[in-house]
Computed example of a mutant assay.
Amino acid sequence: MRKDLDMALVRAFLAVVEAGGVTRAAASLGVSQAAASQQIRRLEEALDCRLFERIGRRLALAPAGERLLAQARRLLALNDEVWSSMRTPSFEGEVRLGVPYDIVGSFVPAVLRRFAKAQPRVRVSLVCEDSKIVREVLKSGGVDLALTTETECGRHGETLRIDRLVWVGVPGGNAHLRDPLPVSLGAPSCVFRPVAIEALGKARRDWRAVCEVSRMEPVHAVLEAGLAVAPLLRSSVPERFEILGRDARLPPLPEFRINLYALPGLSPAARDLADHVRASFSGRAA
């Protein structure tokens, strides 16, 4: 006998995985912690397996949960894409999307490909700046939607993903061993810059700035040359670089949120692009 999965349960499962716990997942889903826990139990009962296990205070995926993860992401992404394409009429015009430099290359292409296929008569204009500037441009009406990387989420925003800021270098490099530590910190408006400086200060690690721009091309060039390390979001690290572990003796960095902001009164085309952004993040590997 064939059975159908409840997509709300699949969405709850992915929310717990990406949030790292039920409490944060419940907040992102807009339900109580008890309701989120019940959804996970219902999914485990439907699949007749245990999806999570506790390791100390940490909630980790059980082997069955690891098997389900990739399939659940594909299933939810397809569900959201079908729902959006079938319920949304065809639009015309332009939508302006603000995106920070640190995630434009890793996340935006997939969003734009899907949106262009669904809405070929809508032109998307990109505005790339640091997150602080992107939010200012949104407030002034310069963009319709804004993606940001921040430690918190402000008014008119929603968190699409919680990700860890990590130290990154080139495989086989030794920049992390130098004293003072050579660091690519981004421009003064970069949200990662003060966080990295504070962490290095608390660790009493002497450092010097090697690259102080936020555009990723020069940052990646400095990293690839082995001249510095840089703080980047884990999910945006290109494959040619490596995340430096504890043996690199670098201070731990905090979590950041990838947020989507939209002011009231969005055009139908902008609302549809926002739906595509949400669908892309719900189906992308963490």
Score class of each variant (00 low, 15 high):
Gly93Ala: 05
Ala60Gln: 09
Asp275His: 12
Val104Tyr: 04
Pro251Val: 07
Tyr101Cys: 04
Lys3Gln: 14
Ala286Glu: 05
Asp275Cys: 15
Ala187Val: 03
Ala175Val: 06
Ser131Phe: 08
Val137Gly: 01
Ala262Pro: 07
Arg121Tyr: 03
Thr159Asn: 03
His220Thr: 03
Pro252Asn: 07
Leu232His: 12
Leu250Val: 13
Asp102Thr: 12
Val222Leu: 04
Asp6His: 07
Leu273Asn: 00
Ala15Tyr: 09
Leu244Thr: 12
Ala248Pro: 07
Gly157Asn: 01
Arg42Gln: 14
Val108His: 06
Arg2Asp: 10
Arg58Ser: 13
Asp4Asn: 10
Arg114Ile: 00
Arg249Trp: 09
Asp275Val: 13
Cys153Phe: 02
Ala203Arg: 01
Ala262Val: 04
Ala228Ile: 10
Met216His: 08
Gln119Trp: 04
Ala116Cys: 00
Leu250Ser: 07
Glu212Phe: 01
Pro252His: 08
Gly226Thr: 07
Ala64Gly: 08
Thr149Met: 06
Phe13Val: 02
Ala279Pro: 07
Glu44Arg: 11
Ala118Glu: 14
Leu233Ser: 08
Arg257Phe: 06
Leu200Phe: 05
Leu69Asp: 12
Gly283Met: 13
Asp206His: 10
Val10Glu: 07
Leu29Gln: 13
Ala270Ile: 03
Glu45Gly: 15
Gly173Tyr: 04
Arg121Met: 05
Leu138Asp: 02
Ala36Cys: 15
Ser184His: 00
Val213Ile: 09
Cys153Glu: 12
Phe91Leu: 04
Pro180Val: 12
Lys117Phe: 12
Trp207Val: 08
Gly30His: 10
Val143Glu: 02
Phe115Trp: 06
Pro188Leu: 04
Arg96Glu: 00
Arg257Gly: 01
Asp4Thr: 10
Leu47Lys: 12
Val16Gly: 04
Arg161Ser: 12
Leu227Phe: 12
Ala285Cys: 05
Ser267His: 08
Val195Gly: 00
Phe91Val: 01
Leu97Asn: 02
Ala248Thr: 14
Arg123Pro: 05
Glu217Cys: 00
Pro231Ser: 06
Ala274Ile: 09
Leu223Cys: 00
